[in-house]
Amino acid sequence: MKIALDATYSAGPNLSGVGVYSREILHGLAHMHPDPGVRWLWCYRPHRFLKSLRIGLPRRCGRRLLLDRLVPDAALFHGLNQRLPSTPLRRSVTTFHDLFVLTGEYSSPEFRQRFAEQARQAAARSDLIIAVSAFTAGQVEQLLGVERSRIRVVPHGVHPSSPGIPEKIILSVGALQKRKNTIRLVEAFERCPPGWKLVLAGSHGYEAGEALSRIEASPRRADIELTGYVDDVTLQGWYGRAGIFAFPSLDEGFGMPVLEAMSRGIPVLTSNRGALPEVSLDAALLVDPESTGAIADGLRRLITDESLQQTLRRKGLLRAAQFSWENAVKRTWQVYLELV
């Protein structure tokens, strides 16, 4: 049996959250199901196909070019990023991460229009849909009119990692952009006691210019470090040094960095929007992301209240232990088994 997956986003440098998800599912399935009866076809769209040649393929995996009208013959096709090729497919699964393209102005109008249409098409044509959180599942149901019976929730995982040695660093991971609420985070940081540093790790996202200008104008500019995109090793180094993790996003379909931070025993401040309360439960300090005062109060509480820090560290480690990529892969495989 051949199973084809859209591996496009797993290729190339600077992997986004979708890229990490794609990589984990692709490799996880190939390694956890060494059934000689299954052959995995990793399909790449033209703009990433050449880059994919640098990726070594596990056994029983083949590399294929993916065009909308040219799809390898397979019993099942899995679109890992809420789109499917337009060619008719035998059976199909699509993973939905979020529907910001329908709900927010966090990208260009052209981008939103194009990806919204792709999402609608994929939702209509998929036999089953994987949503990465119950929040996203609800949005797929409400905004795209998909019946609940076609949706399965498969949350992301996190790799076990060692605790670090915390310093007076507030770490935030994610592209500099409106959705990540960078400007309010910077303004809140300015109200924090001196001696602390804010590290913003991530590439420059949609309309990052406004955030960069605000950072340059900050009276605490000397305490703010912009790393740009960092590779995994460097990022893990920052997690190891962080004393607080701040992730006050305006919207998230899952919020993988929150789990990363929890798994390192870092107290987390995040927002009460999107999937973040569902992922964090009571293991993070939840704040209104549209209130700079609330973010600042939350950060100050975390800085000064050692008992709260310790409680969030403990609960965060427990919460992170409930997620693993192994489970995500097993659940994904079980979704396939419903169709083939």
Binding site: P160, S162, P163, S263, R264, G265, Q310, R313, R314, L317, L318, R319, A320, A321, Q322
Partner: peptide, 20 residues
């Protein structure tokens, strides 16, 4: 089940594990 206890012991302390 209460997974993650080992992580608490490793990252924090035995006492924190017991509190959990």
């Amino acid at each position: 089940s209460l997974p993650g206890l080992d992580k608490i012991r490793e990252a924090l302390s035995m006492q924190e594990r017991d509190i959990a």
